[in-house]
Design a protein around this nucleic acid. Sequence first.
DNA 1: AAAATATATGGGACTTGTCTACTATATGTT
DNA 2: AACATATAGTAGACAAGTCCCATATATTTT
Lengths: 201, 201
Amino acid sequence: MSLEAAIMGFLAEEPRSGYDLKTRCFQNQAGAFWTADQAQIYRTLERLQSSRMVSCTRRRQSGKPDRKIYRLTSAGETALAAWLASPSPITPPRDSFLLQVFFSADLADDRIVENLSARRQAHQSRLDELRSEVVAQAEQTLAPERTRILRAAAFDGAIARERASIDWLDDTIEAIKSGHLPAGQHRAAPIDSQLPETGSA
Amino acid sequence: MSLEAAIMGFLAEEPRSGYDLKTRCFQNQAGAFWTADQAQIYRTLERLQSSRMVSCTRRRQSGKPDRKIYRLTSAGETALAAWLASPSPITPPRDSFLLQVFFSADLADDRIVENLSARRQAHQSRLDELRSEVVAQAEQTLAPERTRILRAAAFDGAIARERASIDWLDDTIEAIKSGHLPAGQHRAAPIDSQLPETGSA
DNA sequence: AAAATATATGGGACTTGTCTACTATATGTT
DNA sequence: AACATATAGTAGACAAGTCCCATATATTTT
């Protein structure tokens, strides 16, 4: 549903081909909020066409294969407007990393810290990407200011969450490093050590 | 994959039935990080059994149907340990709400504020749930301290993100209310008004 | 006595999204 | 000449998850 809406949102700006959507729209722009692989974009376009939300015209090109240019129909505009005004569903939580933390009592301290640090790295890269995307977006002075501000707000939302994750990771790493995490009495052998416990029990 | 791991994580604590997992584990405890409906829990248990990660013993009950108690095998313990030590995949962003914000330039200011406020409400409820879950978890003094602390850390991660979202929403609502968002020159008619524009253009 | 609710387990259809790979042509590189 | 890359679109298998529903029984409520 969201992918349909996102595609309609981009087509509302201007008509585009599946290829445009894939390379231009879902890589930089909306890639921060929704990703879709090529196969799915094409299939969603077909579905939108068969439900009359978009229309399609073929454009010949010399040498390259034909482009199929999709444009939003008036039914599509209505559907897009309805989606924009409707509350978007709260997605059920699905965070495999927090799940790992939740279950990692049997993991040695330094292993836990490793995992947290790696995760920190990943969030940091994503934050950097988001920031550079904000800059790129701000430079596109062709779009009306209202559009630019709202898009910036969306990016800010994503950025705020990345920052929160990083801060939490820093705090947690710090807490473990300074020994606030008591050693466990392991059910069986500690996960990454064949040695018997020496002095921690 | 994560659901398999989560189930194994719970079975590592103690043997349980599918019903236990559904009602006790995936509703309160890990429900904050991963949800699964009943159908999927049972099917995943079957899959885990056929790959020898868990074993199953039937227990008769008078009146009620038999319980199938699943326990982690040693192969399962190994697989769980491997999962805990492996970096969890970064999931591609998929946030329909930010997508809406991204595309909502054609929506009237007060509509946008409505949407943001509704979202704020939702995040606030989720935050409250998380907090009460932390309290509930802290009261379970039967679990070893190490376990409790790590679970609390996982909840803190989720809480940190909820708070960040709420703060961002507050800021954004405030910015729009104080008129920082310029009116748009609409492509067509403004989305939720049949009246011609009067004084905003 | 009928109806709802909790316990316990399962089946089947469906949607979304991922992964792979294939067809074509033009351009640029080694 | 062989190869990679960009353009543009198509096709099929598959995994994960959601939704709705069926089957039992026991207890509690109306």
